[in-house]
Amino acid sequence: MAEITAYLYNKCGTCRKAKKWLDEQGITYKEVPIVDEPPTKEQLREYWQQSGLDLKKFFNTSGQAYRELGLKDRLKDMSEEEMLDLLASDGKLIKRPLLVSGDKTTVGFKEEEMEKTWK
């Protein structure tokens, strides 16, 4: 398997759980600080398309920026292009951890999904 790129935020408990899980499985990954180096709009488009998820699933709905921007009500009226622009503009808006390798992408940390995708 190609190396995993893990977009993480060091103050995020879910990211720490994911790192611990990857380390315990002996899975190597390249850590990218999602707030300092968020994925580009084109990268996000690719990750979203290969994930098979609704683009709204890429938003960190529990984040402060999400609440401040009132996205709960605004997302339903936004185009995919607008959502991608918004996600690319602020790493804190992206649900994490975001793990990517080859044609695989996972968003968030669910152990059973991690087992299925990354082991």
Rank of each mutant, 00 (worst) to 15 (best):
M1K: 14
I4T: 09
Y7L: 06
L8F: 13
L8M: 15
Y9I: 06
Y9L: 10
N10I: 03
K11E: 13
K11N: 14
C12R: 05
G13W: 00
T14C: 04
T14E: 09
C15Y: 09
K17P: 05
K17L: 12
A18W: 09
K19P: 01
K19Y: 02
K19F: 02
K19W: 01
W21F: 11
W21R: 12
L22H: 02
L22C: 03
D23R: 08
D23Q: 14
Q25A: 08
Q25Y: 08
Q25W: 04
I27Q: 06
I27W: 10
T28C: 05
Y29N: 12
K30M: 03
E31T: 10
E31Q: 14
P33N: 15
I34C: 04
I34K: 06
D36W: 00
D36C: 01
P38Q: 03
P38F: 01
P39S: 03
K41T: 02
E42Y: 00
E42I: 00
Q43D: 14
L44Q: 03
L44G: 05
R45W: 00
Y47G: 02
W48G: 00
Q49F: 01
Q49P: 00
Q49L: 14
Q49I: 00
S51P: 02
D54A: 13
L55M: 04
L55R: 01
K56F: 15
K56G: 09
K56N: 13
K57T: 05
F58A: 03
F58M: 10
F59K: 05
F59I: 06
T61H: 04
G63L: 00
Q64I: 01
A65T: 13
Y66C: 02
Y66I: 01
R67T: 11
E68M: 08
L69D: 01
L69S: 03
L69H: 04
L71G: 07
D73K: 14
D73S: 14
R74D: 11
L75C: 08
L75W: 11
K76Y: 05
D77W: 01
D77P: 02
M78E: 10
S79W: 04
S79I: 04
E80I: 07
E80M: 04
E81R: 10
E81T: 14
E82L: 11
E82C: 08
L84P: 06
D85S: 11
L86G: 07
A88H: 09
S89N: 07
D90S: 12
G91V: 08
L93A: 06
K95M: 05
K95H: 12
P97L: 10
L99C: 13
G102N: 14
D103N: 15
K104E: 13
T105Y: 11
T106Y: 04
T106I: 07
V107A: 09
V107R: 07
G108K: 09
G108F: 07
E111N: 03
E111D: 07
E112K: 12
E113P: 00
E113K: 12
M114A: 15
E115V: 14
E115C: 01
K116H: 05
T117D: 03
T117A: 15
W118T: 12
W118V: 13
W118G: 13
